[in-house]
């Protein structure tokens, strides 16, 4: 009898595979926590001993936390601002060269992070400097003069944001495209028959319906920006109190042999990521309850 065969071996096999990966992630975090909290006390009277209080009193670390929160938020907002219209365009319209555009938008996802940073550096390092005149700009053909003269991008906060945005936005575009693909164009058409222009139908019908996708795209961009390191290292550098973000802090602390600080900062990044992910999921779930009643 075919129906009598048990599903248990199959479920056990897929469960075991999932559990192995889950265990790997959890064990990595546990190893960090055991090492970090085992070696680093909360407070120490010995000035040479690294403690939680001493780590989080360092001006560089405080500024790094501030810059991380600030730059990730701006990158995420910029990513949504670009990803919503781009995703909508790709989902709803067919145009010549769409396949190519689609492939280009995936480049930041598949490119090694260091290459993204190097490419940004090559593009922006040829911006006209403060003293450049029009003749210099003409001589320097590599510059698209879309960018305001005199604004320093490389090795600056702007560079950090641009490096994060370049990669994070690609993930947001993908998410938004999938979101719009799942929303039937019929609702927009109904709105149009009721007198809406295409733009009004988009804002009053499509945007509210895609809210969950927008929140996912934003979270993804935010957490991705926080994890970004390669492009920031090459393009913006790891200048303490200027372009140092948490991922750079971990790198700097490892290279200077201060593994304890690196581990504690890593744990903080994990905590921030978990808080953001859980908060957004809880917020989404609360809104899901609102799907039944107004």
């Amino acid at each position: 009898m075919i129906g009598a065969r048990s599903d248990k071996p199959f479920l056990a096999a897929i469960g075991a595979l999932a559990a192995m990966y889950l265990l790997l992630i959890v064990m990595m975090l546990v190893a960090d926590a055991i090492y970090g909290f085992g070696v680093v006390p909360f407070r120490s009277d010995n000035p040479d001993q690294v403690s939680l209080v001493s780590i989080f009193s360092q001006k560089e670390v405080i500024n790094s936390i501030k810059l991380t929160l600030y730059s990730c938020t701006i990158s995420a907002l910029l990513s949504i601002f670009v990803a919503v219209p781009t995703g909508y365009l790709l989902s709803r319209y067919n145009f010549p060269g769409k396949l190519l555009v689609d492939a280009i938008l995936d480049i930041p996802i598949v490119l090694p992070p260091l290459v993204v940073g190097l490419s940004l550096l090559l593009l922006f390092n040829h911006l006209p400097t403060k003293d450049a005149n029009f003749e210099d700009m003409l001589n320097d053909f590599k510059v698209p003069f879309l960018f305001p003269k005199g604004i320093e991008v490389t090795h600056n906060v702007l560079g950090v944001i641009l490096a994060q945005f370049s990669v994070a936005c690609a993930f947001s575009v993908r998410t938004m495209r999938n979101t719009f693909d799942q929303i039937s164009p019929r609702t927009e058409q109904v709105a149009q028959t009721l007198g809406c222009s295409r733009a009004r139908a988009f804002f009053s019908v499509v945007v509210p319906e895609s809210w969950r996708g927008i929140s996912t795209a934003g979270t993804l961009a935010w957490t991705r920006s926080m994890g970004e390191f390669g492009p920031i290292l090459v393009f913006a550098g790891t200048i303490p109190n200027k372009t140092e973000v948490l991922s750079s802090t971990v790198y700097l602390e490892i290279t200077t042999g201060s593994l304890e600080t690196a581990v504690i900062v890593s744990l903080m990044m994990v905590t921030i990521a978990i808080v953001v992910l859980v908060a957004v999921r809880m917020w989404d779930r609360r809104n899901e309850g609102g799907l039944y009643h107004g």
Binding site: T193, V205, P208
Partner: peptide, 25 residues
């Protein structure tokens, strides 16, 4: 004329309701 200027009401096959709006809206 654009869809909204034709004076035609449209009811699609699946209803195509706006998932985030109440019946009143």
């Amino acid at each position: 004329l654009p869809a909204g200027a034709r004076g035609i009401g449209f009811v699609p096959q699946d209803g195509s309701l706006f998932t985030t709006k109440t019946v009143r809206k």
